[in-house]
């Protein structure tokens, strides 16, 4: 909801020391170079994506202040952007964020039932995170894959033509993987930028 986004209370600043990894810093530099001199602020959206991926999947105030420093802009300029776009999370999320499409074309092809099934299976409501911290469920607007409705996206991966069985299979696999490799990071950033 719009109201929620506007009124979202930012978390207290914790004063943590934040720094990108060497690899991310290189990406950052490369991204900033795509925009004219003096227009570095253009890199804000891509940089927030990188920051979110690197720092536990959400944007804390410390992280946003760090990004502001890199781009030499005021922290408020970062906050107003981070609160506007729905892909930036201002609260901690689970390891995997499940984004289930709730918009018209998916809804008439069974999307609503898929969301209900996910809520039941994970024992969470839309917007909540499972107690083991593995999954956060979010109902999102059109993902642009209406031809294969109902759809959901987990990280970069689209899962299409969903059925209850398919959801079982996908979640089981992710749970299994998480148990096997605790620290394995997704490789999407490599492909993304």
């Amino acid at each position: 909801m719009l109201d929620k986004r506007i009124n979202h209370p930012l978390h207290e600043k914790e004063g943590k020391e934040i720094c990108f990894s060497e690899a991310s810093l290189q990406k950052v530099e490369q991204i900033i170079s795509r925009y004219p001199k003096g227009k570095e602020k253009s890199a804000l959206l891509p940089l927030l994506h990188i920051a979110q991926e690197e720092f536990e999947g959400y944007l804390s105030v410390d992280v946003m202040d760090y990004v502001a420093k890199i781009l030499n802009i005021q922290p408020i300029e970062v906050y107003e952007v981070a609160t506007f776009y729905s892909q930036y999370y201002l609260d901690p999320v689970g390891k995997h964020v499940i984004e289930i499409c709730r918009t018209g074309p998916c809804a008439i092809c069974g999307g609503e039932a898929m969301q209900a099934y996910l809520e039941k299976k994970l024992s969470v409501k839309e917007g909540e995170t499972t107690t083991d911290g593995l999954f956060t469920l979010k109902a999102v607007e059109c993902l642009g894959a209406c031809g294969s409705a109902p759809v959901m996206q987990i990280n970069t991966e689209f899962y299409e033509h969903l059925t209850f069985e398919k959801i079982d299979q996908i979640l089981d696999e992710l749970t299994k993987k998480a148990k096997e490799a605790k620290s394995e990071k997704s490789l999407w950033k490599e492909k993304f930028f």
């Binding site: 227009k39 602020k41 253009s42 300029e77 506007f84 776009y85 729905s86 999102v140």
Partner: peptide, 19 residues
């Protein structure tokens, strides 16, 4: 980063400017 409105050309430009 997830905003339908950025399909509107001037909103898109604003967004590309980091706003």
């Amino acid at each position: 980063a997830g905003a339908y409105i950025c399909g509107e050309e001037t909103a898109l430009i604003e967004s590309l400017e980091g706003k």
